[in-house]
Structure formats: C-alpha cells, structure tokens
C-alpha cells in the first residue's frame, strides 16, 4: 500500500478531495442503496402482487387491498386451476401438454433443420446464396402476425376424412399451429445459428480435413459439438415463444382439447373473465410462467448473449 501511494500520488489527492471512485462515502452509499431499493420495489411489485393474490384463500372475485401475505394464505387457487382453469372441460395438465407439444416440436424441428442450412450459409459460397440470405432476412423482418391470413386459408384447405376418426382439418389441429409457427421460426433459427457458426474459426475444419475427416464427419464431430450452446439457446428462444404462442392457436383451434396455456390465459382476463376469481388468474399466470422463467433466470447469461448475436447482426 505504501509503495502504491508513493507511485500514484494523484490517486491519493483525488481521495483526499473526496472524489475517490473506489470507496463511496457512507452517505453516498446510503443514498445509492436507497435508489437501488426504490428500483427493487418497482421491479418486485408486480411479482409480489401476483404471488400474494394467488395465495389469497378467501376466493374473493377481486382483491380488497394490498397484502403481501394475505390472511390464511393457502394453495387453494392453485388446486382449482390445476383441475380446471376455465369453463372449458380441460385441465391445466392438458393445456400445458398442448403448449409443450407446440413449443418442443417447433423449436426442435427448427433447430435441427436450421443448423444444417446455417452451416452451409456460413461456410460455402454457391449460386443463389445471396438470394437465399436476403429472403431469410425479409421473412425475419415481418412479424408472424402478418402471415396469419395466408396460413389460415392455406392450412384450412387441407382436409381429409380419416376412417374412424372423422374429418381432419390441418388448420384446426396442433400440427397446423406448429406448421404456422415453424414458418417464421425456421428462418430465425437459421439466421441465429449462422451468426454463431460464423464465429467458429475455420482452422478447426481445416485441421479436421487434414486429419482425413470427410465433410460430414467434420460437421457432426467438430462443428456440432462446438455449436451446442448456440443450439440450446436458439431452441430455448423458440421454445419460449411457442410455450406462450397466442395468435395462431387462437385463430386456428376450435376444439377445447387442443387449447393451449395462452388461450386459457386470454379466457381468464378477456371479455369472458368477469366471473373468474383473480386468485385463480394469478395462480394460472404463475404456473405458466414459472417453468420457462426459472430456466431463463438460471441460464440468462448465455441466453442474453445468444439473443444479442442473432438480433443485432442485421
């Protein structure tokens, strides 16, 4: 410490003047803590509000005040929404399974098909490459809602009789919703994965080629293992949007057995929700958000950086 002061007198002067950046004074510390606590309050307020409502045992149709832990807190609301969240005869597990099928199906399909195309776009030059890239970018620019009409009409025309099961309409099925989501998700996956593959040094493939690996082996043994984090992040981002997908499922699906979490959530707050107790809405919102939010929270460092790669490279 004495040698440091001898070497850097300017720092000492700065500290004596009270402008030291290293250790804030107690007063400054307290003011900063106060600001941080204020921000903490605004961030946590909606979260705590929804938690306290979900725990409210009185099954009030509307809350009567702000209590952090309501008197006689219980998990009744959770029990009710797990059994039957809306007037439709479906349980939470059925809704969650439908959302899971949509989210997992679309994200896995997009990543598996996407990584192959992303590798080619990242490593090879061929005729039509530029056109393909511009086409993908153009699709990425357009929000999924904007393709609702053509997808609805096109998928609606695919209908045929299945012996014993009756008429199958692709539009009115989970598969149809998955196709509509993949329509926008696959270009996103290709672009996001290409952005990541571009950062993997080519020397690795050259080394593999020197060692006698075929192109296929290079891809599966060298590139894919290195790209695993990007694959996971891209798949998770796709899963996240599929888990709470609303506009296609709401437009396409008619059979309550096919309904998803987001559709039930809309039923709990929409125009039909006048009689839904808010404690049940709160419990449902928590159950829907918790699985994906926990994963996101734990891995946010990787996910946010993966998001930045895909989003910024325009």
């Amino acid at each position: 410490m004495t040698t440091a002061t001898a070497k850097a007198p300017a720092r000492v002067i700065a500290r004596v003047r009270g402008g030291g950046r290293d250790r804030p004074t107690l007063l400054k510390q307290l003011i900063l803590q106060l600001i941080c606590l204020g921000i903490l309050f605004t961030v946590m307020f909606p979260v705590l509000w929804i938690l306290s409502m979900a725990l409210d045992p009185r099954n009030l149709s509307r809350p009567d005040g702000l209590n952090l832990i309501p008197p006689g807190a219980s998990l009744d609301a959770f029990r009710k929404v797990i059994a039957q969240p809306t007037v439709n005869p479906v349980s939470f597990v059925e809704l969650a399974l439908n959302s899971l099928k949509i989210a997992a199906g679309t994200s896995i399909a997009s990543v598996l098909i996407g990584v192959l195309a992303a590798y080619i776009l990242s490593r090879f030059d061929f005729r039509g490459r530029q056109v393909l890239m511009i086409a993908i970018l153009g699709v990425l620019m357009l929000p999924a809602v904007a393709t609702l009409a053509p997808l609805f009409i096109t998928l609606n025309q695919v209908r045929f009789e299945i012996p014993g099961l009756g008429l199958f309409n692709l539009r009115n099925s989970l598969l149809g919703v998955m196709i509509a989501i993949t329509s926008g998700l696959l270009p996103f996956a290709i672009w996001n994965l290409k952005g990541y593959l571009d950062t993997i040094p080519r020397e690795l493939e050259e080394a593999a080629a020197v060692d006698g690996a075929t192109k296929n082996q290079t891809f599966f043994r060298v590139i894919l293992p290195l790209a695993t984090p990007a694959l996971a992040v891209t798949a998770f981002l796709g899963f996240l949007s599929g888990w709470t997908e609303f506009y296609f499922s709401w437009q396409f699906l008619e059979n309550p057995k096919d309904f998803t979490l987001a559709m039930a959530l809309y039923n709990l707050v929409g125009q039909y929700a006048r009689t839904t107790p808010w404690s049940q809405f709160a419990a449902f919102a928590i159950l829907t958000a918790l699985p994906v939010s926990l994963v996101y929270f734990i891995f946010q460092r990787y996910i946010v950086s993966g998001l930045a790669i895909g989003g910024v490279k325009g």
Partner: peptide
C-alpha cells in the same frame, strides 16, 4: 465500486426479462 449487495440487485433486476411477455401484459 464498493456498492453493497451489487450482485443481489443485478440478479433481481433481470426478473422482468425472464417472464413471458403475455404474462407481463395480462398481469
């Protein structure tokens, strides 16, 4: 530098990002 509970604040302040937007909107 030297702010107390820095890591705690950083961890909590990320919460809005991890909640699905549809849940945020309905809440």
């Amino acid at each position: 530098k030297g702010l107390w509970f820095k890591r705690f604040y950083r961890a909590i302040f990320i919460i809005p990002v991890v909640i699905p937007p549809i849940i945020v909107a309905t809440v």
